[in-house]
Design a protein around this nucleic acid. Structure first.
Ligand SMILES: [Mn+2]
Ligand SMILES: [Mn+2]
Ligand SMILES: [Mn+2]
Ligand SMILES: [Mn+2]
Lengths: 218, 218
DNA sequence: ATAAAAATTTAGATTAGCCTAAAAATTAAC
DNA sequence: GTTAATTTTTAGGCTAATCTAAATTTTTAT
């Protein structure tokens, strides 16, 4: 079956929104894709006709098994390219998403399998998100938000859940990267901000930021 | 100015056809792009409106200075990706074109400059075609077609001018690649076929094939 | 339980890129 | 140089993806 780049973007967006709630609404998706609800409705009819979607008018939609499988392929391509851009072309981690957003639509199967092998079958992209394998399976390590970890917790930064430019630049300026080892020293009872130790340095992060930083225990 | 992937394909095709004759006809371009003359006319009007083309109805078209510059950028991207696919992902040289045909449309400037640097600023793609630099300039070594080279001529295969799947597979099966060193031993007065020495082996190539093999003297 | 507000769908247009068939212009043949 | 063949353009339509405005349905508030 032929799936256009636009349809791919829709499927991927639904996949991501389903992490928040199993069934997705028209407005929510329109907002995510920077488009209008009327356009979403049109596309939902098309994707349903292709059996990629379960759709009940006025009551939202969710991916079918096949739609989910397709979405995972796109996520795989996106994250492999992000890894390539960061690792091989030395892009900053806040620049990779935009370029990968285009590269992900090149569907040649051999290309992706060879790219994966060339990169050494990476498990995580530069933001710490897991990369699905060719069958759509991926690692899901136990992660603890820095905002709720117990005092003295030691781990490595594994995943950043808000990947906005602002947040990524904030982290970059403090040399906090995926894989950075850190220890939680204290949490303010006043505002929830946390002090962490990172190598020999100590720094303070707001609760709002700490909430988006997920750690893997070591 | 925004240029769509389709417009890019048209510009690149015109650029290539202009190597044969300065001014290009509607049918010729339609044939090259596997489309209909009526579609070409539509697009020519659009490209002329964007000042990428000189176009006189019924009398053909040629790229403007800006159109040529744009075409060279696309050729650059195409050939850099071909080099990447062959060199880094170990694609066969007859497989790279199709994938590069899609990758070339990803216009992010930083991507191409970083890719170029990562690849070590290659001068030639896997078919021996020169890769334009970021200002559109490229090497144009003196090349001699094997079909007309003098007996005893020694050189390396530098460029293959017919890049059809059939020809590339024919060469691959004989282990003839870009960079292969060979010597012209004799040319048949009967059918123009040539005998060449390649390492310790000798093989015969038809005139038709030899005509597409361009050598650089060494 | 009704009315108001919000969300969603439908209706009707628009644009890019393509097509077929018909009309017009150019080129080739006699 | 007129006619026939070929090439090119124009006219009119189609599909994918988008939009705005209007109609419909669902949800929320009284
Ligand atoms: Mn995308
Ligand atoms: Mn990512
Ligand atoms: Mn292309
Ligand atoms: Mn090439």
């Amino acid at each position: 079956m032929v799936i256009s780049p636009t349809e791919e973007n829709y499927l991927k967006a639904i996949y991501h929104l389903q992490a928040l709630s199993e069934v997705v609404s028209t407005t929510h998706l329109a907002q995510k894709l920077q488009t209008k609800p009327a356009s979403v409705t049109d596309m939902m009819k098309k994707l349903q006709a292709k059996n990629l979607l379960h759709y009940t008018p006025y009551h939202g939609f969710s991916l079918s098994a096949e739609g989910r499988k397709t979405a995972l392929h796109i996520v795989r391509r996106h994250r492999l390219w992000e890894y390539f851009l960061a690792e091989k072309l030395s892009f900053e981690w806040n620049e990779v998403h935009e370029v990968a957003e285009e590269l992900e639509h090149i569907g040649n199967k051999k290309l992706i399998e060879k790219l994966d092998a060339y990169l050494g079958f990476p498990q995580f992209d530069p933001h710490g998100d897991p990369i699905p394998d060719s069958r759509g399976r991926m690692q899901q390590p136990e992660l603890v938000p820095l905002s709720t970890a117990p005092i003295a917790f030691t781990g490595v930064l594994q995943l950043v859940t808000d990947q906005s430019k602002d947040l990524l630049e904030h982290l970059a300026s403090r040399k906090l990267r995926i894989g950075t080892r850190l220890e939680l020293r204290s949490r303010s009872a006043f505002d929830g901000s946390v002090d962490i130790k990172m190598g020999s340095k100590t720094l303070t992060l707001t609760r709002q930021l700490a909430n988006h930083l997920l750690l893997k225990q070591i």
